[in-house]
């Protein structure tokens, strides 16, 4: 646009209008640069996922011939089927399906029980605090920081004594013991900001211990419950050490099975099947994040900002 200086109208009210083209560039340039950098980071982080997805959808021959980065020329979902139900995992050719189910049967009760117990603990520690409650909370917190490796042998002995060795229930128990410190911490801090007057009002209204918990506190606990569930789900689902240490062949979780699938030394390495299996193992946590992720941030921020 050619601007004739004579056409510029300068009024005292508006002052001097800046030449339009240059100022737009000046204000937008930093933003454009920023977005380019962010996009580069995005690509950098998404590249591994791209490699996994692409290679799980092509025949093995295309990978071994060196076309790891290229899109499949011959699309197939056969590696997925193989990883799910027929691939050799350890000694049996069952695919990952039974182990996926093991993981689900472990993670759902473990997360549910740990979250509910954590909420109850938080409720008692903040609203019904008793002599020594701070000490108990301190000990629970201490439990969060004990390294996994340290408890392996004592825990194995405990599970043996309780008759839970090598079972899914045993794994649930181990994860519950480890998770309860974190879930208590989350809920205690959340409920500490919960007005005690509400509990008192409910007491006067005639509500008992569990009624107050169920009717007054729990309905307001959504954000922190989501934080707790995501945290526990991710940790328990991704756990390898406990799964490898405390399970039998028929109770192995997904992570251990995936390892067995990849490490199987018979025949050729079916990379496309391995990629498919790895994605399967990662999908549930990904799903939980996508579904509940926005509550996660909201929950983490709760307490820091009022209202």
């Amino acid at each position: 646009m050619a601007t004739a200086p004579t056409s510029e109208v300068i009024t005292p009210a508006t002052g001097t209008p800046a030449p339009p083209g240059r100022s737009a560039l000046r204000t937008h340039l930093p933003r454009v640069v920023l977005y380019i950098i962010l996009a580069l980071f995005c690509i950098y982080y998404l590249l591994p996922l791209y490699v996994m997805v692409v290679n799980s959808l092509k025949p093995l021959s295309e990978i071994t011939s060196g076309g790891m980065m290229s899109l499949p020329s011959d699309w197939t979902i056969e590696p997925w089927g193989s990883a799910w139900s027929t691939a050799q995992v350890g000694v049996e050719a069952t695919g990952l399906r039974p182990y996926f189910l093991n993981s689900l049967m472990m993670v759902v009760p473990a997360v549910a029980i740990t979250t509910i117990l954590g909420a109850l603990n938080g409720y008692v520690l903040t609203k019904w605090s008793f002599r020594g409650s701070t000490l108990i909370f301190g000990l629970l917190l201490f439990g969060c920081f004990i390294p996994f490796q340290m408890v392996l042998i004592p825990m194995a002995r405990m599970l043996g004594l309780m008759g839970l060795a090598g079972s899914v229930s045993g794994l649930i128990f181990v994860h519950l013991v480890y998770g309860i410190g974190f879930s208590t911490l989350y809920f205690r801090n959340y409920y500490a900001a919960f007005p005690t007057e509400l509990v008192r009002a409910a007491q006067i209204d005639g509500a008992g211990f569990f009624t107050i918990f169920r009717r007054i506190l729990l309905p307001s606990s959504g954000p922190i419950a989501v934080v707790c569930i995501i945290w526990l789900f991710t940790n328990i689902w991704n756990d390898f050490l406990f799964g490898a240490s405390f399970s039998d062949f028929d109770s192995q979780p997904m992570t251990v099975a995936l390892n067995n699938l990849v490490q199987s030394s018979t025949g050729v390495k079916e990379y496309n099947v391995h990629f498919a299996g790895a994605i399967m193992a990662a999908l549930p946590t990904l799903l939980v994040y996508i579904v509940a992720g926005r509550y996660f941030v909201r929950g983490l921020m709760a307490g820091s900002v009022k209202g």
Partner: peptide, 26 residues
């Protein structure tokens, strides 16, 4: 007895109707 609190202590998850009826329900 009945008590009115400084912060009003209304149950945030219930409607006004629910708040008023909670005590009677209990």
């Amino acid at each position: 007895i009945a008590m009115v609190f400084q912060s009003y202590a209304l149950y945030p998850n219930m409607t006004v109707r629910g708040n008023i009826s909670f005590g009677m329900e209990m």
